[in-house]
Design a binder for these strands. Structure first.
Lengths: 339, 339
DNA sequence: CTGAAAGCGCTAACAG
DNA sequence: CTGTTAGCGCTTTCAG
């Protein structure tokens, strides 16, 4: 049977110093003489000692664990975000405890409680709606939280998104400039702020040009539903162009249009998505879309969260970062169009 | 400023019992009278008390945290696996601390050390090669580890994979039955056991039919490299059929074949992949592939790991689960072919 | 069944 | 700079 763990006390004994000396050599801001540090390091190496993070967390009150809540890993946008978030956090000395939120509403409450049980230093909630009860709960526990790719009216909840409203407008302007008049929208889940903002921006720009939405159907951010929505929308009086609320659904829309309805894109219909997930750039889809500036969103999210954790300045911030329209082949390009 | 945490002592005081009584009501196997439990529960609810998992971990020695190492989140196979793994673990009362392994060899060592620092109860390494040093390190720390979708010769390392050798054979038999003779293989990273096993099975079945591999190129499990490999392979004396080591690369192969080389699939060339990721079933790709039985792989992985954690029976197991060939449109189907 | 007491491994004052 | 002394919040003997 192997010994489960080398303790700082054992290292201390071997190095001929006090246990606190050991602690100090492994604590960033502590002061110890070169000599001591060296002796300790040597003994530690020989014994294979590493500080127990959990014990450290208990006494210091900081676990250096960030709870991350995610929902739709099927949507390529999220694995990518998760990876970047985790890397950025890791770089700053934090680690990610991951929690998958069931689509079930109310389940999220349980999840947050569980997260809190782990004494996380902070929470990042990606694509999840937080009741103000929950945010209150976290505040009471002294655990800062920031929303990623979702925003809320709650004034003391930090949130980072792309500028979805502006993005929606860009799509409308682009479609209009291409001469489309009969324009449809396949919406995602209405409960998501991203959906609401994208659509609002889209509609408003359309309205400014005196154009009303030709047709609308809901895809709920789910592949099959998006396919259904497409069938319904194109059953009669089909639109000339469609803005799909995210790329994930847009891929299904494209497939349905081409392989089921036998339509040509963009000859028969222009399609524009949102997110710029990897697959959007693959030749088979070649989807024109609005890019979410993931890197900057991640950087900001981490920045805000760590600032809140480390400086305890409760200042909440809500950021919406502008993302560019990426021109590809799924939508007719207006003559002389430039970004 | 809000109070950071309600302690069991506070609950005890309010409930008029000892602190140990509180601990007992929240400890599964403990004994306490109905009366006590009720009083404690009530007080706990009023105060919003929840046991501190970290403190519990410290004294009990079990953190109920599983360290999960993943590498290629871009490959749809992994987000899916991650989700299932996490859900299964959550169901059993464990949570996942995620670590993204850089492709960098040697970096994995650092990662494992970090994982160990968190006193995890076990480790699941997905798509990562473990040096026997590392596995030794974990054993010394008393932390069981099981490999997911990767296998190793190390006899005391548990591993769960699909039956890659058999899968490779199936592809060969299928292609041969369709009458193909000039058959190529686009390989993944040679360091992966999955790659080696799939190719070995493939080659062996080919050999039994007296057929030698017509051409071979390496894609390293990376999209761009797979595209390059395709270009090279089809530059002259193109094969009639290609077995691509995983779906992730196969998607790029398909795109390159169709949109760059102008070939028709499966008329000009049959393509078969491996994994059956979601995108393989999307109409744009419609890829014939060998399905990895993810659910069963996950179930077995969790089963083995928890068995090792909870029963401390060091019995290591290596499992290879058979997966079916999924017939779709990217490869010519032999006349009268049945599974 | 229940309270008192002893730590888990570590950091953070506190005197020297 | 360094050792000593308290705990962090909880589980777990050990006597009752």
């Amino acid at each position: 049977m192997s010994k489960k763990h080398v303790t700082s006390a054992e290292v201390a004994e071997r190095a001929g110093v006090s246990q606190s000396a050991v602690s100090r050599t492994f604590t960033p801001g502590a002061s110890a003489s070169k000599k001591t540090i060296e002796k300790v390091r040597k003994a530690a190496a020989e014994l294979g000692y590493r500080p127990n993070v959990l014990a450290r967390a208990m006494v210091s009150g900081k676990s250096r664990i960030i709870g991350l809540v995610v929902a739709y890993l099927e949507n390529q946008f999220y694995p990518e975000a998760l990876e970047k978030l985790s890397n950025e956090l890791q770089k700053r000395g934090y680690h990610v405890l991951i929690f998958l939120a069931e689509k079930t509403a109310g389940h999220i409450d349980t999840v947050v409680e569980e997260i809190l049980d782990y004494q996380v230093d902070g929470i990042i909630a990606a694509s999840v709606a937080m009741s103000s009860d929950l945010s209150e709960r976290c505040r009471a526990a002294g655990v800062p939280m920031v929303l990623f790719n979702r925003s809320q009216d709650d004034p003391n909840m930090s949130a980072v998104t792309s500028d979805n409203y502006a993005g929606g407008r860009k799509v409308a302007e682009f479609l209009l400039a291409a001469g489309h008049q009969k324009i449809g929208h396949i919406a995602g889940w209405h409960g998501a702020s991203t959906q609401r903002d994208r659509e609002a921006g889209f509609i408003s720009a359309l309205a400014e040009a005196g154009v009303a939405l030709h047709s609308r159907a809901e895809g709920d951010f789910i592949l099959e539903k998006a396919a259904d929505a497409t069938r319904k929308m194109f059953a009669n009086d089909a639109p000339e162009a469609v803005f799909v609320a995210n790329d994930h659904m847009a891929l299904a829309v494209l497939d349905t249009l081409r392989f089921e309805l036998g339509l040509k894109v963009p000859e028969d219909v222009s399609v524009v998505g949102y997110d710029d997930v990897p697959a959007a750039g693959w030749p088979a889809y070649n989807l024109t879309t609005v890019r979410q500036p993931t890197n900057r969103m991640v950087a900001n999210t981490v920045e805000i969260l760590l600032d809140q954790i480390e400086n305890h300045t409760g200042e909440t911030r809500r950021i919406a970062i502008d993302g560019p329209l990426i021109l590809r082949g799924s939508a007719r390009i207006p003559k002389g169009w430039t970004t």
